[in-house]
Amino acid sequence: MNYKNITVAGSGVLGYQIAFQAAYHDFNVVVYDINDEILSKAKAKFDTMSTAFKEDLHASEKQLQRAFDNLSYTSNLEEAVKNADLLIEAVPENPKIKIDFYKKLAQVAPSKTIFATNSSTLLPSQFADATGRPTKFLALHFANEIWKHNTAEIMGHDQTDPEVFKDVIAFAKAIGMLALPLAKEQPGYILNSLLVPLLTAATDLYVTGVADIQTIDKTWMKATGAPLGPFGILDVVGITTAYNINKIAAEESKDELKIKTVNFLKEQFIDKNKLGVSTGEGFYKYPNPAYKEEDFLT
């Protein structure tokens, strides 16, 4: 694995985390997004993230400064990938947006550049043709708060070069991840194959009036010992991601409950910019959500 220059496309919930994690482990990282305003917001998020690295990883000021020195930013895609050994795509969880992005990327990226999608639920084979380099394309999926929940699921498709697969596993380890290779394509990988049904069930229980948000979260936390309930998890993941996943499912299935859930998430959260931890409010208010109170489970 000879990667040194990494480009992260998309500076949203996971994109900026991936970028900082790679920079912290001494890779040169270019952060790309569609305009400079979004990139300015990303820079502010890196400051918050450095605080988390201090608290959770006991990172030194010298280590953090080196990470910042390894980061650069651009809204010009050609400029972003001109030296890239690996590009990690973290654009919105929407097939059309991703396909459009890959078609543009294929026109400007050097032939050496490996493409990896961080898609949570979509398969790499859905985008392989659009990349123009299917043998150099695969999925590399991270859990949220990747510096703590340091998993990296690596999933190829039928055309992925085995050497590329091995190199991406090596890269994942090089940035401090527990590398988790999958032997075949699976919607949602391992993590989301387990997690999405939980989050969907919790949302269904609330939307159908079975119980309120805190009661559902208390049930899960107390019964399993989990530090977060499903709605706390949704706030961390980002409600936009949950909305996009439910929207795709509703469009495909025409299921009345899924449609009701999509409308609920849109009207009560998306339209009000209550997107979870990232905006300071989702199902809970931050930085002091109710589930962190000492008496939450009493």
Rank of each mutant, 00 (worst) to 15 (best):
G280A: 03
T135C: 13
I114A: 07
D212G: 08
A242I: 08
N35R: 09
N150R: 11
P289V: 03
L205H: 03
I34W: 06
E294C: 05
L86R: 04
D204F: 15
M221Q: 11
G176P: 12
F53P: 02
A42S: 13
G15V: 04
I99P: 05
K266F: 13
K222N: 13
H157R: 10
E89C: 11
G10K: 01
I114S: 00
M1H: 11
S11W: 05
D204L: 15
F53W: 10
D167T: 05
K166R: 15
K82Y: 14
E153V: 11
A109Y: 00
A59V: 05
Q214F: 12
S75V: 10
F115M: 14
S60P: 03
V8E: 01
A116Q: 01
L122N: 03
L178H: 10
V13D: 02
A44C: 06
A9D: 00
F171W: 06
D100C: 11
F264W: 12
I259T: 14
L191W: 04
G238C: 02
K166N: 14
V91Q: 06
D33Q: 09
P187A: 09
G15F: 01
A9H: 04
P289M: 08
V81E: 01
I259D: 05
M49T: 02
T203L: 15
D158S: 14
A109Q: 03
G15S: 06
M221L: 09
T160R: 01
K62H: 11
E293L: 14
I245L: 14
K222G: 13
L180T: 06
H157I: 08
A183Q: 11
P289W: 07
K247Y: 13
K173R: 13
P287K: 00
I97Q: 09
A42N: 02
Y243W: 11
V277W: 10
D36C: 13
N118I: 01
T117H: 08
E93I: 00
S11A: 15
S253V: 12
N244R: 10
L86D: 01
D56V: 10
A130C: 10
N83C: 08
V30M: 15
A23R: 03
P287H: 06
Y16R: 13
L195W: 06
V164L: 07
A211Q: 06
E37L: 09
S111F: 10
Q126K: 03
K112E: 13
G280L: 12
F264D: 01
P124G: 06
K274S: 11
T117A: 11
A211L: 08
L64Q: 04
Y286T: 00
A109S: 14
P181N: 07
T151W: 15
E78Q: 12
W147Y: 12
A152F: 14
D204A: 15
K104E: 09
L191D: 00
L275M: 05
G156A: 11
I175N: 08
I146N: 08
L77S: 02
A250S: 07
K82A: 14
L297I: 04
V81R: 00
Y32I: 04
V196H: 12
K62Q: 08
S111Y: 12
L140P: 04
D100E: 13
F115C: 03
P181R: 14
L180Y: 10
K103T: 11
D271V: 02
K54F: 10
A139M: 14
N273P: 07
L234E: 04
